[in-house]
Design a protein around this nucleic acid. Structure first.
Lengths: 149, 149
DNA sequence: CTTATTGCAAACGTTTTGCACGTTT
DNA sequence: AAACGTGCAAAACGTTTGCAATAAG
């Protein structure tokens, strides 16, 4: 995975290009996301940031504003859950999709070239310009199948 | 497409199995969904129901409660838009996935056998039991590409 | 010194809930 | 009669916004 140094350099470039400023908050948020294992929700990120840097009193609004910025730059990606908000993850890994367990909520990652290529074909036919895509398979994960009660 | 008579029969069975009751509201909502062309949001469904049966004063809560029930029985399916709610559609048609225009919000349907089969392969490998799946391709639809400003 | 960014609290839109009243079984 | 469903209003939820104060360029 991309080293943190590279990531923050890329972020600084993006900021410069858009006449935005590098702040302590943005740096901490980026770092916390980079170090986050797996998927997270804005509130969880907020708690982690507050725990690590209580003296800064980072507000939840800043978390949301920064996530918006990072998502628009494809540094993080998100999956929506209707009224239940979004889950985010750091996007520096390879592209992948998710299987989502209906019982325990776990996200299992996968990626598949055949599907990726097929998507491109479909979009081309409809003259649809792909920006992004996501695919979810819902069901029951192996563990929950075994723990059935 | 499945005739309405069959649909309502199926619905009545589901209700009986779960010791739920058939009400005027549930019937009207089911019928309105069946007749809905394309995708809808809960508020739109609510308006349509109210217009057709103003004397019943169906509340938005009943719409949400009924949609929950119908979705859990796979009679409708939904796509989430994070904080922006969900779009629903009647699920009695053949399975299909969506391309979603980031500009105008339009949903374009497609379906593809290659992808469907590939999904099954992937799930089998992970011993994940598929209940459902959904796939979205985000981007810009043809029309919005032409109307670019 | 100009402009962007922040935290806070209030506002927002969607969805859910508590409750007394109605309806279905 | 018992159990479930309803409309209503209020609450809850995740998210966004207005604003005065603060910090970065």
């Amino acid at each position: 995975m991309e080293p943190y140094k590279e990531l923050i350099g890329k972020f600084q470039e993006i900021l410069k290009e858009n006449s935005l400023k590098m702040t302590k908050q943005r740096e901490i948020i980026l770092q916390t996301i980079y170090e986050y294992e797996g998927h997270f929700i804005p509130e969880g990120l907020h708690k982690k940031v507050q725990e690590s840097y209580p003296e800064l009193k980072v507000g939840i609004a800043t978390i949301y504003r920064t996530l918006q910025l990072l998502e628009s730059e494809n540094i993080v990606t998100s999956i929506s859950f209707g009224a239940n908000g979004k889950k985010y993850e750091y996007g520096g890994k390879d592209h992948h999709d998710h299987m989502i367990c209906n019982k325990c909520g776990r996200l299992i990652e996968f990626c598949d070239d055949t599907i990726e290529k097929q998507q491109e074909k479909i979009a081309k036919k409809a003259r649809f310009k792909i920006v992004n895509h996501s695919m979810q398979i819902y069901g029951i994960c192996q563990e929950c199948q075994e723990n059935k009660k």
